[in-house]
Design a protein around this nucleic acid. Sequence first.
DNA 1: CATGAATGAGATTTCATTCAT
DNA 2: CATGAATGAAATCTCATTCAT
Lengths: 194, 194, 194, 194
Amino acid sequence: MRTIGSNGPQTLAAIRTKGLELLARHGYEAMSLRMLAQAVGIQPGSLYNHIDTKQGLLFDVVEGHLRELIAACDAALDGVTGARARLERFAAFHVEHHITRQEAVFVGNSELRALTPGNHAIVAALRGEYEARLIDILRQGADEGSFRIGDVSVTAYALLGLLTGVVTWFRPGGRLDSAAVVALHVDLALRSVT
Amino acid sequence: MRTIGSNGPQTLAAIRTKGLELLARHGYEAMSLRMLAQAVGIQPGSLYNHIDTKQGLLFDVVEGHLRELIAACDAALDGVTGARARLERFAAFHVEHHITRQEAVFVGNSELRALTPGNHAIVAALRGEYEARLIDILRQGADEGSFRIGDVSVTAYALLGLLTGVVTWFRPGGRLDSAAVVALHVDLALRSVT
Amino acid sequence: MRTIGSNGPQTLAAIRTKGLELLARHGYEAMSLRMLAQAVGIQPGSLYNHIDTKQGLLFDVVEGHLRELIAACDAALDGVTGARARLERFAAFHVEHHITRQEAVFVGNSELRALTPGNHAIVAALRGEYEARLIDILRQGADEGSFRIGDVSVTAYALLGLLTGVVTWFRPGGRLDSAAVVALHVDLALRSVT
Amino acid sequence: MRTIGSNGPQTLAAIRTKGLELLARHGYEAMSLRMLAQAVGIQPGSLYNHIDTKQGLLFDVVEGHLRELIAACDAALDGVTGARARLERFAAFHVEHHITRQEAVFVGNSELRALTPGNHAIVAALRGEYEARLIDILRQGADEGSFRIGDVSVTAYALLGLLTGVVTWFRPGGRLDSAAVVALHVDLALRSVT
DNA sequence: CATGAATGAGATTTCATTCAT
DNA sequence: CATGAATGAAATCTCATTCAT
């Protein structure tokens, strides 16, 4: 019943940070709250002073990241008008973000099935919102005549796949720096629709 | 008290089939052997007359699928020579296979981290073998001058991403049939490198 | 993973017996499954080869006892006709049963609130059935003119209280033997309504 | 961050009141101090500015009620002399009190086993004191010749059972008002010993 | 080759209680 | 006198796995 350091918000932040890390490394089911507590430096039961449930933690992390993603995307596209320029900007943003926030992106993609139905619905809606950005750009390009697109939806998902794969292999300090990787992907994306 | 008509190989096949299904739906950690046993219609303990461990089952399923994938890929490319034709054939094969074997592909992609280090190494080597098919094609095309490619590796992974995303959204009976989806992806892939 | 003695029905019987004992001594909330497992001589988790949940065990014990009680009561009253004789028989049966099955009676009376709403409803209905035996006898006596009763329901519950209290203090081997205690209670009950 | 208007004794009173309520509804083990704190409108830790331990709270409530019970009983019997009149008065008092203080009575009867041995001994002694009132009356009546009693102790406990059962079923606003219920019980009690 | 009962470890979560602020 | 964060123990329950029958 020692109660030495009692620092609230710091602990919550640590739970979120370490939680993201462990979720990315082990997955939701394989990450035990014991592990998380140890990583944070508290007892397992003490986690519950900061989170409601393990599921709640997952949802917080995933939902929070998706909201950030959407906001950052909108900021990146702000003021850009032509379809080509917008696609360029979107692709660059997407790859850069996926390189920077690798862990969050990975968790957001791979742990969807661990979400409660209710939470899943919310997250799925947010993902849909994000994907709609790209779909809109492609449609605009098709209408403008600047893109040649067989099917807007299929192309959008294919492009997202093309731009997202980077998450699985990129490690900072490798052969190519992030700027080069971004440029390569932007190029591939643009060529595939023009 | 053994159920009449005890048939070994059939039971093992059922374990593999249902196991794949459950692994795809719930993930390795979330699939319990109790669930699997119930799906197969036997008692949990009886599973061990057919499998060594849960980990062994995962490895069998993933490794088996990868070997099939590689063999089928080689069969598809057999006799095709030009880089462009080979890429076309590869892309078509890859998408078709990913549509047909959705579950196996999904498990093979998402449960890698559940593999023990030893098993992981074997599987990673097999994946590398498969990816080498595409890398070779791209390099050949770059050498021939038929492809314009910034970086062969990056392009290969990006193309794999582009061609693989279909796993997450395609459902038979949807708006587009599989032939159309294949054609659309082949087109995108070719345009992105030419 | 030693698995020495594997005796099914014996273990379940032991769980029921020891469970009743511990429920009577500590109450539902205070009886832990660890305690029960230790009393039975197995690991806590092994209990779940025999019971569904702790709540299920409580329900089984309580419901089982109530069904026995009703059946034994009907057997005791079988063939007895006059209200006075029936009340005498009922009172004797009730006290004797409560002396013999002290633990089960105690659990059935004191752990009702630990039952799930659904289970509670079932148990309450069974209790109602039993109480109806006494109510019928009192009503018959009132109709026959052999009993003077102010209010049948109130009298029934008061008599049940009178006849049940024995559970809290009787210990075999005390100053009075069970036959004497039964006779004293029968006498009190009869006098209070005649 | 202390809520404005911090008033000590009021908080303690609230803890006692709500505590009694929750003890009656859920039982000692099932009532958590978190529940109690929420009912009172403070944080769990703050309870400890007013109580020593959970066990202490239980003991306070039970012992306090028993002392009140005894004092009120003595007041009710004060000045009444004949055994018959005293029994009548005792029975009326007992039923009325049990109707009025249902919750406290219920807790006092059902949570005895949750008391630590030391506290249990004190409470048991107080219960003995109360029961002695009835035993004395019965003995007096037997000596006077106004009661016919087989065994004083057994009769006393039986009568207490008869008069106490009301706790389990009486709800104000039911078919009978409390005066009627009291009268019915007094009548039953008197008839059973005369 | 199937069963059913067992194990031991571990999962998430709750709890009474403490104490610096 | 209240809060919020911590503790350490314990709760119910699940799991992969074993093995006598």
